[in-house]
Amino acid sequence: MSRILLIALILGSFFAQGSWALQPAVSTLVDDETLHNAAELGSNAPIEIENFEIPLNLVDSDITQRLPKEVLESLVFKTPKGEKILRWPINPGDKTYYKRVEDYLKKMHVSTERHRYFTGYRTASKSLILEDPKSGAQFSIKVSTDSASGLWKDKQQTIAESKDARLVADYIDEIAANKKFKNVVVLDEPAMFSLAILIRRLL
């Protein structure tokens, strides 16, 4: 018997352009999330984020024109041969979901080498704030982890949830285009990348 495990990345919240240091608003967000959020207090120090490099043709994606070019170029790069590669971040502390991505890559005969490209910052919700060390682009990303705390210890990011988030983001953007919000700041989610992973289960 087999089942399909759905794993996805969802990009969202904000985009800032800078270099060498977080932009003031982003720095404040990281401080609030790690030092002042009672859900889970932590460190606001930068950390290295590991990532897989996956050929883009093995990944499903939903990318809107609202996604800044700098963010897309942080995640997707071209090899000297012209192949497009996606940097798939691994959530620090995760002990489950990255292994399933790794198994998928092995089945597809893709390297499982872990690379270190992004500088990252944690949030209380286990999203990550990422900074591109070359362009200075800063953005948030949510990737599966089993290392959360409280009532939501397991935070698998499924394709279904990511699709819902993308639909809601597009709906709100459409409303905002016709009537500007006066008292609401919209945290956009303009892109997602996903893998459908086949897992064998013996009866």
Rank of each mutant, 00 (worst) to 15 (best):
Y98G: 08
F118H: 13
Y97M: 00
A124I: 09
R122G: 14
T123W: 07
L128Q: 03
H115M: 11
P133E: 11
R122Q: 15
S111M: 09
A137C: 07
V110H: 00
D132M: 06
L105D: 00
L130Y: 01
A124G: 13
A137P: 07
T119Y: 03
F118S: 02
G120P: 00
H109S: 15
Y104K: 03
H109D: 15
L130D: 01
L105R: 01
A124V: 09
H109N: 15
T96S: 13
Q138C: 09
F118R: 03
I129N: 13
K106G: 04
K99N: 13
V101D: 04
S135P: 01
K106D: 12
D103K: 09
G136M: 05
R100L: 15
S125L: 08
Q138T: 01
E102N: 04
H115I: 09
K106H: 05
L128P: 02
V110N: 00
Q138I: 00
R116P: 09
Y121I: 05
Y97H: 03
E131W: 07
F118L: 01
S127H: 06
K106W: 05
T96W: 01
K106E: 07
H115T: 03
G120V: 02
G120A: 05
P133I: 11
A137G: 09
S127M: 14
E102Q: 05
K107G: 07
E113D: 14
K106L: 03
K106I: 07
K107P: 09
D132N: 10
K99P: 07
H109G: 14
Y121F: 09
S127N: 14
I129S: 08
